[in-house]
Simulated assay, not measured.
Amino acid sequence: MHRRGVGAGAIARKKLTEAKYKERGTVLAEDQLAQMSKQLETFRTHLQAFASKHKQEIRRSPEFRLQFQHMCAAIGVDPLASGKGFWAEVLGVGDFYYELGVQIIEVCLALRHRNGGLITLEELQAQVLKGRGKFAQDVSADDLLRAIRKLKVLGSGFGIIPVGGTVLVQSVPAELSMDHTVVLQLAEKKGFVTVSEIRDSLKWETERAKQVLDHLLKEGMAWLDAQAPAEPQFWLPALFSELHGQEGT
């Protein structure tokens, strides 16, 4: 016995029902989107009022500034995205990070002959604060990272390299691969590394270790101590603690 096919009327009713559900779903989605947009606009208005009321604290306190940045990020507002408009006029945050970016560049250029374009975030912060003077606004590590990210967008060679418990700031457009980062991490505690240490710790072939170290030497990011006992040592001045205490320009 053959099953009867579904009638044209039933198919039409099914399509009509599906169309109504789809239309209803679209209306609900549009309503939700409109409500969310309205809520976000309300949040932005309150955020602007908060910023106007607390602008001195935002300018003066790195901790307060960080909390404010988190509040902005939560609703998709970037006070640093433009040098014009409300945020720049009321808070001056655009000018603050622009000036900080210039100071970061000045410090990195002054020390590049010594560290090859790699400097710890801690050392960079100390040098920037020293250059700003004791009466200037305080600058936190978060402020530096935000300014560096803005410099990175400009294609100026700046970048941030996490190395174990240390953060390195790169200020030259040298290409550093994951291999280079791993070797920097290996050298973090002592400030130097050897071919045999790389070979034993990372289970690399000798040639691979030499290629990485030769690249760091070529870029000026490493120094070679050929007179070291046992075997040559490759020093990373950015990680060399004795250099951190020196003044330099």
Rank of each mutant, 00 (worst) to 15 (best):
L100E: 05
R112H: 12
F96G: 07
C108Q: 13
G101Q: 01
L118Y: 12
G116M: 06
L111M: 10
G101W: 09
Q127N: 06
G117Q: 03
V128A: 09
G116F: 05
K130C: 06
N115A: 02
R114L: 02
V93H: 02
E99S: 12
A110C: 07
C108I: 02
F96V: 05
E123K: 15
L111N: 11
R112K: 14
E122G: 05
D95R: 03
C108G: 12
L121G: 06
L121Q: 15
L118V: 10
L109F: 07
C108H: 13
G101Y: 04
A110G: 02
A110D: 14
Y98A: 06
L129S: 04
L100R: 11
L111V: 13
D95M: 09
L121D: 09
L124E: 11
L121W: 10
A126H: 01
E99Q: 04
T120P: 05
Q103K: 15
L118R: 09
V128K: 06
L100D: 06
F96E: 07
F96I: 13
I119Y: 01
E99V: 04
V128N: 08
G101P: 06
K130G: 08
G92N: 01
R112S: 14
V102T: 06
L129R: 14
V128I: 15
L129T: 06
G92K: 03
V107S: 09
G116V: 00
E123P: 00
L109M: 11
L129I: 09
I105K: 14
Q127L: 09
I104Q: 04
I105P: 04
G92Q: 05
G92V: 04
V93I: 14
E122Q: 11
L118S: 05
E123I: 12
D95A: 03
Y98I: 08
G101A: 03
L118F: 09
F96D: 12
A110H: 10
L100I: 13
L118M: 13
E122P: 02
D95Q: 11
G116K: 08
L121C: 12
L124F: 06
N115V: 04
L129Q: 10
G131V: 01
C108P: 00
L129F: 01
E99P: 02
Q125K: 10
N115F: 02
N115S: 09
R114W: 04
I105Y: 03
Q127R: 15
C108L: 14
E106T: 07
V93E: 15
G116T: 01
G117D: 06
I105D: 12
V93D: 10
L111R: 15
T120R: 04
D95W: 03
V107N: 04
G94F: 05
T120D: 05
K130S: 13
E99W: 05
G101E: 01
I104R: 03
G94I: 04
Q125I: 00
Q125F: 01
L111H: 05
E122V: 11
H113P: 02
G94R: 02
F96Q: 12
L124T: 07
E106L: 11
K130D: 13
Q127M: 08
Q103F: 01
H113Q: 04
E106H: 00
A126Y: 03
T120M: 02
L100C: 09
L129A: 08
L118Q: 00
L129H: 07
L111T: 10
I104V: 15
V128H: 11
R112E: 13
E106R: 07
R112W: 07
L100S: 07
E106D: 11
G131T: 07
